[in-house]
Amino acid sequence: MVVPRHWREREHRYRLVATKCKICGRIYFPPRSVCPNCGRKSIGNMEKLQLSGNGTVYTYTIVHSGMNAFKLQKPYILAIIELEEGPRVTGQIVDAEPNEVYIGMPVRMVFRRIRQEGASGIIHYGYKFAPR
């Protein structure tokens, strides 16, 4: 049962809520509770920030030998997306063919199923990216 582990990340995974250091203004996604730039001064000074979900492909690969959890989607496109607010994030690209993806391609966040805990377990939803 891995419900709590995923549950506590839901606002980040469902809609790209980042954290922002109130001291230096840097934005972090995946979220951080300590700002690497400001160290302990940032503790208690990290606020939430809703990202736009828009970005561009920083790098990508076509995964042919993937994880079993993504068997139905093989080959799938995995990418690091540079979001327009700055942070980079790892996620899949959907609604595009492998030969259509390129570094610099504009993408937007979409909401998809990521994994599930077997047929009777919980479904984990989260972000993927689609051409913009």
Binding site: R5, P30, G66, M67, T90, G91, Q92, G126
Partner: peptide, 12 residues
């Protein structure tokens, strides 16, 4: 939580 969860294998 932020790589493997989303389908990032090591080779990928």
């Amino acid at each position: 939580e932020w790589e493997a969860f989303f389908g990032a294998t090591f080779p990928a």
